[in-house]
């Protein structure tokens, strides 16, 4: 997406926000329609399997409560991703406390990621999923945001709390790792 297209996209979101703040409830529906599925994909990429709908809903509820504080320094979708990420981390911490478990390690994450393998009909997709599951958490996050959402590195950097350059490196490292995994077949 070119800068002009991104600006147009951002302006569309900002116009919807203004309409909603002005009392137009239909604008909220359009905002949710534009971003809900992307949030669900991102939640899944973070290892969330249960309660994705609830997580996405909580993200929107929080976002709309704080909508006046949105300053458009990032895109609305990036802002929503950061809210959802905090909710995921909160949930993971709460679950760890409840179960008195140690933090999920990479092996555990891979196991969770592979839990859906049985649902994947396409063998090629299965292999790609397995390859992505073996990436480091940061690589996987950057790769997923880039591949599933087409998010620019500047926005990815805001979500993962890194720099644009570092995200570019993570993406290309991840792509190389995926290719190597697939070529080992």
């Amino acid at each position: 997406m070119s800068e002009t297209d991104r600006d147009a996209d951002a302006q569309a979101d900002e116009a919807l926000i203004s309409r909603w703040l002005g009392g137009d409830q239909r604008a909220a529906t359009q905002i949710v329609e534009r971003h809900a599925q992307a949030l669900a994909r991102y939640a899944a990429s973070q290892g969330v399997r249960d309660g994705i709908e609830e997580l996405v809903q909580d993200t929107f509820v929080r976002a709309f409560h704080a909508m006046e504080s949105f300053r458009a320094e990032s895109s609305l979708r990036t802002w929503l991703f950061t809210i959802l990420k905090r909710l995921v981390l909160d949930r993971q911490r709460a679950e760890r406390r409840q179960r008195n478990q140690v933090e999920l390690d990479e092996g555990h994450a891979v196991q969770e990621f592979d839990a859906l393998d049985g649902m994947v009909a396409d063998e090629a997709m299965l292999r790609v999923r397995q390859a992505v599951a073996r990436l480091s958490p940061l690589q996987r996050e950057v790769f997923t945001l880039r591949v599933t959402e087409g998010l620019p590195y500047t926005e990815i950097a805001k979500v993962v709390g890194s720099t644009e350059g570092a995200c570019r490196v993570h993406y290309h490292s991840a792509m190389r790792a995926v290719k190597e995994f697939l070529s080992d077949d």
């Binding site: 137009d24 529906t29 949710v32 399997r49 809903q57 929107f60 509820v61 992505v132 591949v147 599933t148």
Partner: peptide, 27 residues
Amino acid sequence: LKQARAGLSLGVPRMDVAAIVSALPAP
């Protein structure tokens, strides 16, 4: 990339927009 995108989207439930909107605060 297309395979990865399709693969990573598998198992992601379809969001119920109306249900989400109903939980949102009034403007």
